[in-house]
Design a protein around this nucleic acid. Structure first.
Lengths: 191, 191
DNA sequence: GTCTATAGATTGATAGAC
DNA sequence: GTCTATCAATCTATAGAC
């Protein structure tokens, strides 16, 4: 029993996107050739052009797929709890390594996409929308208690977590969890 | 009157490093070929190999040159003032566009170097030292008033500024200066 | 130390068979 | 839609003249 063309097509597409996720995180956008991408997905470069038209097309599709999946996953668990401080702990842990992707991969990929957006105006709105969605999600999550949402808190918390994670990558000892919590709590209380 | 060999040598070295700064910020580490680098410096690829042995050598030299120059510049002006709130404003403005480099170039370059360090363990200590130096500098700068320095404040302030600047690049309206000040003040007062 | 020249590998992108 | 085959451009790295 043979699978339909559509199934085959969808599988190839997904394989290419998965390969792109891994390779771009590992070697960067510029460091990932179309050939390497296709090979990692067990296809040939022709398939990449047929599906996405080129490397930029792959990136747009990748951004579209990730869209708010990550933001949603980061926030999701935080909603479950009632304690304000635990909110922050879960938020921080999920941010460092959100469920849908391995933490190692995710952070590097996110920075690659950010750089790509800075350099390619046509991709900027897509990436900007991701951050906007993350800001809202976090603002809503931490506002769940008293019902009042404050966008600026989302902006600040995301900023802090990004910067802390960056420093932690270079030297884990430089960013103890307690320091992260202290900073997040301070921002939360600045409302 | 002819210049000495040493002068010529030093000029070539500096030209190559300047070209590397500009090109890496613009196209990234992987996106910058040795040929393009040499050409931008008005030399040939052979000069790059003679001076630095290859692309990694250029990056190490670049890191060494930037070292704490940027950190020092960011902090320097902040020392001049007495008012605590003005401290933060100057800090934020200098961070967004520190004197030694154009703001546009600096932030992108810094992210490229961070990604490079994440992927290349041998470069990690160099970049980690840059961040460590920046943490100390900021911690000392904001502690100038009461004399008490707190490393964690440096970690948190840097983290926040990095994350805010990233969001601002994608959408300037998303990060008003007042939000930045509010966040920085909250972190500062968390001591 | 610096250049030119070049070899060998890799890249992006396309044409054509199936 | 997917593959093979392929061309032209670009890249890294080295050898050798000066």
């Amino acid at each position: 029993m043979r699978r339909t063309q559509d199934e085959r097509k969808a599988e190839t597409r997904q394989r290419l996107l998965d390969a792109a996720t891994a390779l771009i995180a590992e070697r960067g956008v510029a460091g990932t050739s179309i050939d390497a991408l296709a090979e990692a997905a067990d296809r040939t470069s022709g398939a990449v052009y047929a599906h996405f038209g080129g490397k930029e097309g792959v990136l747009v599709a990748l951004l579209d797929e990730l869209k708010d999946a990550v933001a949603a996953a980061i926030v999701e668990e935080s909603q479950a709890d009632d304690d304000d401080d635990q909110h922050l702990e879960v938020l921080w842990r999920n941010f460092v390594a959100p469920p849908p992707l391995a933490g190692d991969v995710w952070v590097l990929l996110e920075h690659e996409l950010w750089l790509y957006a800075c350099r390619n105006p046509e991709a900027r709105p897509l990436v900007a929308a991701r951050y906007e969605s993350a800001r809202r999600g976090i603002a809503d999550a931490v506002a769940a208690d008293d019902g009042e949402s404050d966008d600026a808190v989302g902006t600040l918390l995301i900023a802090l977590m990004i910067g802390l994670e960056m420093q932690r990558r270079l030297d884990p000892a430089a960013v103890p969890d307690e320091v992260a919590y202290r900073g997040m709590r301070a921002l939360l209380e600045s409302r």
